[in-house]
Structure formats: C-alpha cells, structure tokens
Design a binder for these strands. Structure first.
Length: 517
RNA sequence: CGGGAUGUAGCGUAGUCCGGUCAUCGCGCCUGGUUUGGGACCAGGAGGUCGCAAGUUCGAAUCUUGCCAUCCCGACCA
C-alpha cells in the first residue's frame, strides 16, 4: 500500500543502504568450545557469543540481549495465543508481596522462605560521611515487602474480592512477569536470580474441573515444547517431595538435554483448596452451599531458552527451530562492484518481499562491511535456520543458493518457485530437529532392574525407567547415593509389578529417574 | 553458603614463584588502499586505574589482608 502511494507521487523509495541492525559487537574466537570438551562451557559460549544474554553487574541476574529477547518474544507470542485459545485472559499483579501474605499457606512459605528478596526500607539519604548514599534508617517499612518468587499469595488475596458465586467461576487468568528467587548458584537462562515467566492462576467450582484445567495446561506446554521448540517431552506427575510448595499435585514435562541430563520444561499444579483456605476465598454454589474455591497454577520461564539451546545446538553454534527463530531466513548478497551490490540487493529485497507475503521472516544482510564468508559463519553461529546466498551468477541464471543450518546441506534453487520451496524447507528443518531430538532421547532411555546397571547408566547419562517402592525415604536415599532424582511418574505409565531398584520392596510401576538441571 | 580454580585493552592471553623501561602477543576496533561465491590482505593508528580496596616497600600486575565477580564440584531450585 505504501509502495503504491510512493509510486503515485513519484517519491524515491526509502531504501537505506546500510540496515545495520545486526550488532557489530559480534565477536568470537574462530572455534567454539565443543560439547565433548566441556558441555557447560559450550553452553555458556553459545549464550554469550550468539548474543542471547550476558551476565550483568548484578549478581545472578542476566541481561537478555536483543537477539535472545526476540526468541523469547516468539515463545511468548505462541504461548499467549495458546492460553487465549483455551479461554484465558492476561492481567497483572504487583511485584511486591506483603510478608504476612506469604506466610498464610504453610507449605508455600516453607518452600520459598530461603530464597526471598526482602524490601525493608523505602528511602535513601546522603551518607553523613560524604560517601554516596545510605539507607535511611528512619524510612523502615511497617511491614516488609517480598519481591515475588511466585504470585499465588497476592493473587489469591485478590481473588477473595472477585469471587462470591459459582457464576464468577471459572476464573482463568495468566500474567507475564518477572520473579526473583535468590539462588545460590546461577547459570544464564537455566537458573537466574531474576527470571521472566508466565504464571497462570485459575479458580474453579469443583476439584474435577481444576484437575482438568491442570492437565489441559500441561498438554498446552507439551504441545508447545514439541511443535514449536521441537523438543520431545515426557509428561508426568512429581513425587510428593518434588511437588510445588502448596500444591496437591504437580504435573510436569521433562526434556532431555544433549548431555543426557533432564530439564524440567514446565509445570502445572493442582492446588486443591489450599490457597482458597489460606485466603478465605469461598463461593456460593448452585445448591446455595458455601465452599472453598479450587485452584490451579502453571508456568514456564526463560529457562525454556536454555532448553532450546541445549536441545538442538551443535559445535558450530546455536541451532534454532524455524518456528522460534528471530528470523527464519537470512539473505546474503554476493558482489564485487557497486553495480553488482545494487543488483543483488534489489534481487534480495524482492525475494524478501515474496517470502514475507507467505509469512516467512527474513533478514537481508546488506552490510557492505563484512565479506560473505564472515556472514555465513556469523549466521550459522547464531542459528538462522535457512540462508539464501545470491550473487551475479545467480541473477544471470535466475537462481539462488539455499543452505540449511541443521544439516548444512546446500542446493541451488530457481527464484520462480522459491517461496514454496523455502516454506517446505522450513517445515522440514522444524520436523528434522524434533525427530533428531526424539531419536537422541530414545537412544538414551533405558529400563533396568539391576542396581549396578542403574549406576552405570546414570554415569553414561540419560533417562532410566526403574521400579521404586513409593517411599520418600528410598527416593531420598537414591538421590544421595547417585545424584539422580525421580523426574516424574509418567502419565502414560503401564502398571507393572516389580521390585524397587534399591530396596527390593514391591512396586507397581516404573518411574523416570535421571540427573537433572 | 562449603571445597577448588581464575581475574591483565571489547575478547583470548604472556609476564606473577625470583618485586625494579614489562605492560606481551593474537583477534577485534579506527584510517587509507586493494579485495568480496566459506571467517580477506597490506600499511598506519587508537585503546589498559593489570577485578576493587587497604597494607608492606624507595618502588607492586608481581608480596600480604579483606572484598567483589566468574568457572568447576557440592547443598538449594523453574
């Protein structure tokens, strides 16, 4: 439309020669630490060198850089749509929670007390000694405020005013927010003191309905992980000791990283009437009887960024599934003279427009400050799913060279039907990444009834289905002896009589063991 | 928070044991030219309170103490 206007009044189209939106700061050694050399270092290198995030001046807190944030925004968009499609709406609750709120649910405060940031004062003043500012001792708060580690308490305190009747139910609310948990040891995206997430908090008239909601949202997470992130997950419920503080039942999805360790990728909790009772949230039912409301909460965080990186990336850098890539296609012009530069960039812009018509996101890398080879490597490092190279030779032939990030395969394609081919390729990359991750996981998933083999397999890394006698004591013992935890009791688990891997006591089903992040 | 290691320019590093023109080298950055189908080359140039703060000394990147940060291993966790 704008193009048409421009044409009518014959205005020159604004086409800046340098659309330098790719950070110039990009710097890296020619070699990335390999996964085999040092998996942790490999992960950190990718996060920092692909410009996803950096450690900040604040202990345990990260700066999410534009390229990393763009991926998080893609995740948000997809999830937000899924939440809305399942009837939820967004709202926002305060960052600060009065200390007294947090302590109203006994298990909840028990679980979070050790990692809370606390606001005690509301004012600074000049240091009498002349060195900067100090906390004004006269500005002490009557009641301390806790920086939310999660929002159940402030939200249920609010829900008390919103819910009187069964007609007010269900209440299906989500919020996108930041939370703070004062972690001892932090790792970019996987565990930071402050992180971004979404937390759903729903209220229901019956336990059945709340359980259905809990399971529905677990399903949403599993679908998102598999269809968008291209990460296969195992759905299950946590054991009592791994349950969310204040939950009756915690559902989760567990994914396997490339070092064979498990990563919890999302949780959905059935909270029973615990929070309703703690915050006196009652409703009158159709039958006129007063009852406490049933609750759920569910969340995924920027930790998913860590899962995404660790699932698909290789020793050449980040690999992104097309559905979540900041941009799906990068076009790299190849040229010698100014005339060639103009010609290939024009051709590139046309391709970009065509692809964008089909909903493909494209970046034209028309920087004339870097050579094509440099750009190839840079975009590979940053995980762009598809690269299109176009040079004078291609213009003469009506072709382009297309290269896949996941397999490094290249092919020369006709420009005419490029859009269809590109869309097809992006779909292929998306499913290839999923299948690759699935194969990887299945090859490292074992069943064993022997304790010795259990130990050997754990050291190799992977998921192990083994029998457990169902007691927290045994679970704890196994954890102490092996560092492995019960990731979940899978939902689709067949019942099977057996003997506990450690104690030999009777067991009715296998559970999923792994070392975890 | 416990054990171990590290901290020198934007990044990676030499020098630290044996204090004294030592602040070294590579990448990156800037300027000019030649280049451009897989990380260009040549020439010139800029950039550092040696993590921070005290102390020892005529003199500290180097020795001492404290603090901070990062990494690895534990405990805790999305």
């Amino acid at each position: 439309m704008f193009g048409l206007v421009a044409k009518c009044v014959n205005l020159p189209q604004y086409e800046p020669k340098f659309t330098n939106t790719i950070p110039q700061l990009f710097s890296m050694s020619k070699e990335l630490t390999t996964r085999e050399e040092n998996y942790s270092k490999w992960y950190n290198d990718i996060v920092t060198k692909a410009d996803l995030a950096d450690n900040s001046a604040v202990r345990g807190c990260m700066v999410i850089k534009p390229y990393g944030y763009a991926i998080w925004e893609k995740m948000q968009q997809a999830l937000d749509k899924m939440f809305k499609d399942t009837g939820h709406v967004n709202a926002y609750f305060p960052l600060f929670i009065p200390k007294s709120f947090l302590s109203k649910e006994a298990a909840h405060i028990e679980g979070f007390a050790k990692e809370c940031a606390v606001v005690t004062h509301y004012r600074l003043k000049n240091d009498p000694d002349g060195k900067g500012v100090i906390v004004d001792p006269d500005a002490k708060l009557e009641e301390e405020l806790i920086v939310r580690p999660t929002s159940e308490t402030i939200i249920w305190n609010t829900y008390r005013d919103w819910i009187q009747s069964y007609r007010d139910l269900p209440l299906l609310i989500n919020q996108w927010a930041n939370v703070v948990r004062w972690e001892m040891r932090t790792r970019l995206f996987l565990r930071t003191a402050e992180f971004l997430w979404q937390e759903g908090h729903t209220a229901h008239a019956t336990a059945e309905e709340a359980v259905i909601e809990t399971e529905k949202m677990l399903e949403v997470y599993a679908t998102f992980a598999e269809e968008f992130m291209a990460i296969p997950v195992i759905k299950g419920v946590k054991t009592a000791s791994e349950r969310f503080a204040g939950a009756v039942e915690t559902y989760c999805i567990e994914a396997m990283m490339q070092d064979g360790k498990a990563l919890q990728a999302g949780t959905s909790h059935f909270l029973g009437q615990n929070f309703a009772k703690a915050f006196e949230v009652k409703f009158t039912g159709k039958d006129g009887k007063l009852d406490y409301v049933w609750a759920t909460s569910w969340g995924v965080s920027t930790r998913l960024m860590g899962a995404l990186i660790m699932s698909h990336s290789d020793d050449k850098g980040l690999v992104l599934p097309p559905k979540l890539a900041a941009f799906q296609v990068v076009i790299v012009p190849i040229y010698r003279s100014d005339e060639e530069y103009t010609a290939v960039c024009d051709a590139g812009r046309n391709i970009k427009k065509d692809l964008e018509r089909f909903g493909v996101s494209v970046k034209l890398d028309d920087r004339d400050t870097h050579k094509p080879g440099f750009k190839f490597n840079e975009h590979e490092f940053r995980g762009v799913p598809l690269r299109i190279a176009i040079g004078p030779r291609d213009i003469a032939n009506g072709t382009v060279e297309v290269a896949r990030r996941d397999t490094f395969e290249k092919e020369v394609l006709q420009i005419q039907d490029l859009s269809t081919k590109v869309i097809h390729l992006l779909e292929q990359i998306q499913s290839n990444l999923y299948n690759r991750a699935l194969t990887y996981r299945d090859e490292r998933t074992y069943r064993t009834d022997s304790w010795d083999e259990f130990l050997t397999l754990l050291d190799k890394g992977g998921f192990i289905y083994a029998h457990w006698d169902g007691t927290p004591e045994t679970e704890q013992k196994i954890k102490e002896m092996t560092k492995a935890t019960i990731r979940c009791i899978p939902l689709d688990n067949p019942k099977e009589d057996g003997k506990c891997i450690l104690t030999g006591n009777p067991s009715t089903q296998r559970v999923l063991f792994a070392r975890a992040y």
